[in-house]
Simulated assay, not measured.
Amino acid sequence: MKRVKSKQHTKTRLKIVQVISPSAQPLPSNKGGTEKAVYELTEELVRRGHDVTLFAPAGSKSSAKLITYTGTGILTRRGLANFVQRRLPENVDIIHDHSFRSVLGLKNLSIPTVCTIHLPVKQQVRYPVYVSRRARKIMGKNRGYYVYNGINLDEYEYSTQKHDYLLFLGRIIRQKGILEAIDIAEKTGKSLVIAGPVKNPLFFQKEVKPRISKNPNISYVGAVGGKKKQDLLKHAQCLLFPTLWEEPFGFVMIEAMACGTPVLALNNGSVPEVLSDFPHMICSSVDEMIRKVKRPAYPAPSALRKYVDSRFTNARMTKQYLKIYREVIERWDST
């Protein structure tokens, strides 16, 4: 699909293509950060009057023009790239590739293509966008852009009424710090609710489940969404985020704060950025997290909600992406 170069950056209304991986959850989804970000960005672009086409998994819903994936071979790089290229609308101004392997960004297309790198991977694409400064530094060697993920604050229930339990919400894998969360519960005597999908059944059966079974104060409620997730988030005394890896963003942190729930986290990955206004909630060790659970000095729920509203909304995210789109289009048209 060819694109005629012109003064496209002066247009008020852009023609934008958003592409998410076929392996993602159908949109909208509250089970994955990438899915949330792509959905909120797409909806906000449409609200602002842009002409948006979204390539997404079957079962997705959107205000944009929706093209859902069908056929065999779609999960391969070539299959996905061919599927999208055959169905691109005419006169597209920019493509935004959210696929986990940046399959369109790695193609030599005649349309400027921005790639958000949602995972901690190094992709050699022309216009990369990372979801934190830290991710851009580590994965991109400070090349490209960064934009924080954003949420629709109206969709998150806020509460000042907290119950006496800690919450771990995320994929049940070693890197997310699930064992460390259990350590904190055991050593503080606090109740802990664990929620999230089991991604490594062997790890769960051998190392996680036995410790849950031995402690009546710890419960595993499985993967959650909708009302159940909202209730867990808004009533938790504190969300534990003992991440052990280069977490590119950490969506659940802003979700918890939007509900007025504090986040206690290990100082890894993007944590210092996401919790920048609450440095005393960032810990250098599990022992420090334990001490702070025992003697809590949590921020006020209203301060947490206000903080998310000022920094991590879908409106702010979309404004930053539109600025990048126009800059990339202008650079593209000047070559």
Rank of each mutant, 00 (worst) to 15 (best):
201 P>Q: 14
327 E>W: 05
231 D>Q: 15
269 G>R: 08
281 M>S: 13
151 I>E: 13
6 S>K: 11
155 E>R: 14
123 Q>I: 02
217 N>E: 10
65 K>Y: 04
316 R>Y: 05
109 L>Y: 03
104 L>G: 05
240 L>Y: 03
249 F>C: 13
236 A>W: 05
318 T>L: 06
7 K>S: 03
242 P>I: 12
166 L>P: 03
208 V>G: 15
258 A>L: 12
331 R>Q: 12
42 T>W: 06
276 S>I: 11
86 R>H: 08
216 P>G: 05
89 P>W: 04
55 F>L: 04
63 S>N: 15
309 D>F: 00
279 P>G: 02
115 C>F: 01
212 I>Q: 03
256 A>T: 13
60 S>N: 03
141 K>C: 07
42 T>A: 12
224 V>H: 14
240 L>N: 10
146 Y>H: 13
321 Y>Q: 02
26 P>F: 05
219 S>K: 13
15 K>F: 01
1 M>L: 11
67 I>R: 04
207 E>Y: 15
73 G>Q: 03
234 K>R: 15
13 R>I: 11
145 Y>I: 07
120 P>D: 09
73 G>Y: 02
39 Y>W: 14
118 H>L: 06
200 N>V: 07
245 W>C: 10
241 F>Y: 13
71 G>N: 11
200 N>S: 12
202 L>R: 14
98 H>I: 01
293 V>A: 12
202 L>E: 10
120 P>L: 03
89 P>D: 01
12 T>S: 06
162 K>Q: 05
309 D>W: 00
304 L>V: 13
57 P>H: 05
90 E>K: 09
228 K>E: 14
231 D>K: 13
31 K>V: 06
90 E>C: 00
200 N>R: 05
185 A>R: 05
5 K>Y: 00
334 S>W: 08
167 L>T: 01
164 D>I: 01
54 L>S: 09
147 V>K: 09
25 Q>S: 13
98 H>M: 03
247 E>D: 11
223 A>L: 14
106 L>D: 02
116 T>V: 08
152 N>V: 01
79 G>D: 09
210 P>K: 04
276 S>E: 08
264 L>H: 00
147 V>P: 15
310 S>G: 06
299 P>R: 02
159 S>M: 07
35 E>S: 11
281 M>N: 12
183 D>E: 15
164 D>E: 09
80 L>C: 09
254 I>E: 15
253 M>E: 07
244 L>I: 00
2 K>N: 11
313 T>F: 06
334 S>D: 07
131 V>Q: 06
290 I>T: 04
2 K>I: 11
313 T>Q: 02
174 R>Q: 11
265 A>V: 12
83 F>T: 06
64 A>N: 12
267 N>Y: 05
308 V>T: 10
321 Y>R: 00
24 A>L: 12
265 A>H: 10
299 P>F: 07
138 I>Y: 05
54 L>I: 14
163 H>E: 15
265 A>T: 11
14 L>R: 12
20 I>K: 04
